[in-house]
Each structure stands twice: as structure tokens, then as C-alpha cells.
């Protein structure tokens, strides 16, 4: 009973964070800012939802599999954010301010 509550709360928090990330993804004006919004949904929301499901499960194999999924998502999602940011930077996309109007000042040596 107690565990059901914990699982429900984790799922709710996860859903809320997912929605937050999606809203940010929709509203932020700049590409790099949108990557940050995805970052929220990837890390904490994924962990919350997978842990919530893990608590609901009662046999060992699915629990371990969920842990493995969580582990690999935590390894690969920051890496793919980085790969995407790097690809955009290489292609000449430069960050802008929070209204998407002005380009940001770049550190010396970058162009």
C-alpha cells in the first residue's frame, strides 16, 4: 500500500517534469535553450517514471531490466545532447538570447 503511494507520486512527478520539458521545448526561442528543456525531461523525468514502474513490479527480472534501461538512458541521453549541440555548432548555428533576437557574445577565439 505504502509502495503504491510512492510509485504513484514518482509517476506524477515524472509526468509533471515531462510536461515541463515539452512546454520549454515548445516555448524557448533559441535552439540551445531547447536542448536544455529536453535535458529536464531526459534525466529526472525518465528516472522518476522508470523507478515508479520498478516499484510496481513484483518479480526480479523486469526490475533489473528497468534498472538497465535507466542506466543506459542516463549514459546515452547526455551524450546525444552533446552530439547534437556539437553538430549544430559545427554547422554554424550560434546561440541567441532568450528572445531569439540578438546573438550572444562569444568567448574570444571563437567565431
Amino acid at each position: 500500500m505504502m509502495l503504491d503511494w510512492v510509485s504513484g507520486v514518482l509517476l506524477l512527478v515524472g509526468s509533471f517534469l515531462l510536461l515541463t520539458g515539452a512546454l520549454g521545448f515548445l516555448r524557448f526561442a533559441d535552439f540551445y535553450a531547447r536542448i536544455h528543456a529536453c535535458g529536464v525531461t531526459e534525466t529526472l523525468a525518465t528516472s522518476c517514471i522508470l523507478l515508479g514502474l520498478l516499484i510496481q513490479s513484483d518479480s526480479a527480472v523486469p526490475q533489473f531490466k528497468l534498472l538497465l534501461i535507466l542506466l543506459f538512458v542516463l549514459l546515452s541521453s547526455p551524450t546525444s545532447s552533446h552530439a547534437l549541440a556539437k553538430a549544430a555548432w559545427n554547422a554554424g548555428v550560434r546561440p541567441r538570447d532568450n528572445r531569439g533576437k540578438q546573438p550572444l557574445p562569444l568567448p574570444p577565439g571563437e567565431h
Binding site: L11, L12, S15, L18, G21, F25, R34, V93
Partner: peptide, 28 residues
């Protein structure tokens, strides 16, 4: 709550699809 999670996931997918349609650039 599981149903709620599924619904949220579908909403998020819809938003992602919207972003994939409007761009503006390829990386989006």
C-alpha cells in the same frame, strides 16, 4: 497514475511532432 503517465507521454509526443514539423532548422 499509470494512465495519466501514458496520456502525458502522448501529449509530449504531440509537441515533439509539432516541433519536428515546424523546425525552424534541421537540428530542431
Amino acid at each position: 497514475t499509470l494512465q495519466l503517465t501514458v496520456i502525458t507521454l502522448l501529449v509530449v509526443m504531440l509537441i515533439a511532432l509539432w516541433r519536428a514539423c515546424i523546425g525552424p532548422n534541421v537540428f530542431d
